[in-house]
Structures are given as C-alpha cells and as structure tokens.
C-alpha cells in the first residue's frame, strides 16, 4: 500500500530513473566485489575482444575487462559527483547565509566573488584549477566543486534574505534567542529543502563536467577507469569497429545524468520549499 502511494507520488518517470540510477549504484558498489576481473589488470592475449559471456562489455586495447572498468568508472563518477556537490553546496550555503545575514560589505565582497566564479563555465573553471594543481582527478574535483559554490550561494543568500524578513525571525529575535541559535533553528531548516534541490540538480552537470575533463585529458589520468577518459580511449577503436570500449561508459554517463536530472526534478516538485509556508492563507 505504502509502496503504491509512493509510486503514485513519484510517477513512472521517476520510477524508471530510480531504477536506472539504482543499477549504476549497484554496479559501482557490488561489481568490484563480485566480478572476477579487475579494472586495471591487462591481458595481452585478449585485447579488443567484443562482448561475450566472459567479458559482457568486451575488452580494450590492453585486454582489460570493460565491464570491470565500467563499474570502477561508475564508482568514480558517483563519488566525485557526491563529493563535489556536497562540499560545493555546503560551501555555497555558508557563503550565501553569511552574505544574507551580515549584509553590508561582507555581502558585497562575497557575492562579487561568486559572480566572478559564476562567469566561468564549470569546465573552464576546472581547467583553470588544473593549471594550479596539475591535471588529475583531484583538480577536476576541485574545479567542479568550485563551479557549484556560486549557484548554491546565490540561492542560499536569496532564501536567507527572504527567511530573515519573515515575522517568525523577528519573533525569535524578540524572545532574545542568541543569533547562532536563530540561524541554526530557524534559518537553516528552511534553507535545507531548497539546498537539497539545488544539490540534486547540480549533480548531473557535475558528473558530466568531470567526464568532459577526463575526455579532454584534463581529468582522470591513465590508467584511471574514469568514464570520460574511457570514452577518449575508445574513440579510435570505435572507428576501427571496436564500438564497445567507448559505448558502455557513454551509455553509463547518459543514464546517470538523465536519471539524476529526472529525479531531481521530481524532488523539486515534492519538496517545494514554499510548501511549508505557503499554507499561511489557508486557515485550517
């Protein structure tokens, strides 16, 4: 019964998306433990083999199992997405809330910095970071994390301004609630749903940006089984007929991004941050 209600609330699109995402998560978590092949072990006797029972996704130019690499790549994409979105959102929230609460020059300085960050596409930002930190997954992660910050900061600031203008904040001030308590008990809880929506909708683009960096050779380095880098590795073999090396990570990427976007849209609809306060005119 509860299941059926949940299904109705979320709708079939989100259901399919959840299944797709679930499959990738399962592949990322369970496969490396269960699958006999390893993502980096080479086998010179079995290079560029097409999909078969032993290698369902085939092997690449040095005889590595593409399925094992696919799973390891899923792990990397999911994890980096999670890290970048979490850290980026938290940092954005701190910046946005600080700016919204303190106003004045602090607000000005912080938001101008955010504007500058926002002026660069995620990829360019990440490329700039690689100049400083060297190419690699670490700088790619830092870069995309940075790209998440201003978006969240802006929303968090606007929301903080809206919330602090609410009478309930004045009421809390009037009872003499310490400022930190006020933020912790009244501002942050109202921000949270919005931030979750922001974070989930940023997830897809973050994952994509990391893959794009890998594709350009600025992200994951050889022989890290990162999806973007795997697609690059598979480009030429694909032209030569070995379609499986690039196709599977490409499909994985597509599934992951589409599914997270569909889910984040649903989460947005279900967690409308106005929901809680929108009832103010319905005098139940």
């Amino acid at each position: 019964m509860a299941l059926r209600r949940t299904w109705q609330r979320w709708g079939p699109g989100a259901g399919i998306a959840a299944v797709g995402l679930g499959l990738i998560v399962v592949a990322a978590v369970a496969l490396p433990l269960l699958w006999p092949w390893n993502a980096t072990a080479t086998d010179f006797a079995a290079t560029m083999r097409g999909p078969s029972w032993t290698h369902p996704m085939g092997t690449d130019g040095v005889g590595r199992d593409v399925l094992a690499r696919f799973a390891a790549g899923a792990r990397i994409s999911l994890l980096i997405g999670l890290v970048a979105v979490t850290i980026g959102s938290l940092a954005g929230m701190v910046v946005g809330v600080t700016a919204g609460l303190l106003r004045g020059w602090v607000d000005e300085v912080l938001m101008r910095i955010m504007d500058v960050l926002m002026a660069f596409p995620a990829l360019l930002l990440a490329m700039a970071v690689t100049v400083g930190l060297g190419t690699g997954l670490r700088s790619a992660t830092v870069g995309v994390t940075l790209s998440v910050v201003p978006w969240v900061a802006r929303v968090a600031r606007a929301e903080t301004l809206r919330i602090t203008a609410l009478p309930l904040i004045e009421a809390s001030r009037a009872i003499g609630l310490p400022r930190l308590d006020l933020v912790r008990k009244h501002v942050l809880p109202h921000l949270l749903p919005l931030l979750i929506i922001q974070a989930t909708s940023a997830y897809g683009s973050v994952v994509l940006a990391v893959a794009a960096l890998g594709f350009l050779g600025l992200g994951a380095q050889v022989p890290t089984p990162e999806w973007g880098a795997m697609i690059t590795e598979g480009m030429e073999p694909a032209l030569a007929g070995a379609w499986w090396v690039a196709l599977f990570p490409g499909l994985g990427m597509l599934t992951l991004v589409v599914c997270t976007n569909v889910l984040s849209d649903r989460i947005r609809d279900l967690m409308d941050p106005r929901g809680a306060l929108a009832g103010r005119r319905s005098r139940g």
Binding site: L168, E170, A171, I175, P189
Partner: peptide, 19 residues
C-alpha cells in the same frame, strides 16, 4: 532584558515557525 519585554505580532500565521 528581552526576557522581560515581549511582543505579540499581528500575523499569527507567519510569526510561528511552521517546522
């Protein structure tokens, strides 16, 4: 001091935290 001086607002809908 605020403990000794309180305020009651006009709008009881928005002055109470809905959460």
């Amino acid at each position: 001091l605020r403990a000794r001086m309180q305020i009651l607002f006009q709008d009881p809908y928005s002055s109470l935290d809905p959460r």
